[in-house]
Design a binder for these strands. Structure first.
Lengths: 245, 245
DNA sequence: CCGATATGTTACCCATGGGTAAGAAAAAGT
DNA sequence: ACTTTTTCTTACCCATGGGTAACATATCGG
């Protein structure tokens, strides 16, 4: 609409210049779509982002996106896949190297933590696989299982070689992966903690624990998991529908 | 439509009998809506659940829901609030009791883990606060901060009284809370692990760690966080739009 | 029994946003 | 220069689903 031809002022790093030469390579554009999309999806959530918004951020219009993707859900899947590839390459690299089970686990924790602070890394845990087609969701589930199995494998190897104390690999892997995955939910680029700080600290904390004296007896007298009781909330009184929101 | 009067065959435990007497208390119905809603939201995801489905499961129709809630997002908020209340009551109970910082932390871990295996508990971490009105989202954020602060407080108290080794309470709390929150994402009622097993194991694992020998030096030689490279995916070739999905 | 109130139902509105059709404008081939 | 192919735009379609209006039926106080 604004007919100012000599001022290209495009969005930061979009291969599409506002109204000008369009010639960059296809793959470059495809990836630019993914970068814009993943950012918006993380910011606002998949369902609140419209394809119009994605396109607008790239100086194009919605139908142009369909030159590169079959639909919104495919864009989501490709974003997710980018993250999965990053993890896979990390794992490949660790597998290529040596070290005890514990050493490998620590490498994985460190790299995975850092990944969770990136857009495509976070997309791995912030996107809902139910938004994908059944076919793509199946691919994603497989990839997730592969990652989970790697955690367990390193832990099991560690208990075998003595670097990790005996424990249930399944639950231990869940605990560690959970702590790591959660980073993708709370990490903010503008926060106080740098990805390196987080990765370093998690590497120690998730393997060394907190208790001063290991092996101490734990008094398992926990408060009973409170069964839902009508806890006298302030919602019981008169009906409160109607009226403006 | 089906004119079979003597066969009430209602959905399991809905206060609305298919076509009969309707007289149960208001609050009971309100809570029944929440139970049905939270279950559907967790099963299918908030955005994929329609109010018609919620109503149908309760043997009523959509507009009837508006007698109890102002809109879909308020139902979501109330589900979330139920979970928050459960956590709050756990915290209150622990605060009332005594024990070292570590002991309190373990109680919290144990109870919180068990909570994550319940519907309303899981709703605490599986719902997207961005689906709420700004006003309700603010309430939720406050509640979350209160919970997070409790973790940190117990940890700080533990380092002060010597039951927990020196560490950054903020990151340690993130790690523990992350592992716990993640339970809400992977726990299945029909899985192999019972909530008690999970809670017990997590209580140990999250405080004792895995390494055989504490305080050992960690070789921080991790593989560099792999920068995104054009990893030659099979997406580079010819365009593949068009054709059926 | 008889209104008043609470609670449901049927029938509708309509904004939203994913997706498509048809054709213009570049790029690329010749 | 010309056609051909790719890329992008304008203009639309339409299913979905949250929300509302108007009306019906219990329930309850009297």
């Amino acid at each position: 609409m604004d007919s100012a031809p000599p001022a290209p002022s495009s969005s930061p790093s979009s291969p599409w210049l506002p109204f000008e030469s369009r010639r960059r390579a296809r793959d470059e554009k495809r990836e630019a779509v993914l970068r814009a999309a993943v950012q918006l999806f993380l910011e606002q959530g998949y369902h609140r982002v419209t394809l119009n918004e994605v396109a607008e951020r790239l100086n194009i219009t919605k139908p142009a996106l369909y030159n590169y993707f079959r639909g919104k859900d495919e864009i989501l899947f490709e974003c997710w896949s980018m993250g999965a590839e990053l993890v896979d390459s990390v794992i490949t690299e660790i597998n290529a190297g040596g070290g005890s089970g514990l050493a490998k686990l620590r490498k994985l924790v460190h790299a995975y933590a850092a990944l969770m602070a990136t857009d495509f890394g976070a997309s791995l845990v912030r996107f809902d696989l139910r938004d994908l087609t059944e076919r793509n969701a199946a691919v994603a589930r497989t990839a997730k299982k592969r990652i989970d199995a790697t955690f367990r494998r390193y832990i099991a190897a560690g208990t075998a070689d003595g670097s990790i104390r005996p424990c249930d690999p399944k639950l231990a892997a869940f605990a560690i992966a959970g702590a790591l995955n959660w980073i993708g939910h709370w990490y903010r680029r503008d926060g106080e903690l740098s990805p390196t700080e987080i990765a370093d600290e998690f590497t120690v904390r998730l393997t060394e624990g907190l208790a001063s004296e290991s092996r101490q007896q734990i008094t398992n007298k926990t408060p009973r998991a409170p069964q839902r009781r009508n806890s006298g909330r302030a919602t019981s009184g008169k009906k409160r529908t109607g009226g403006p929101r």
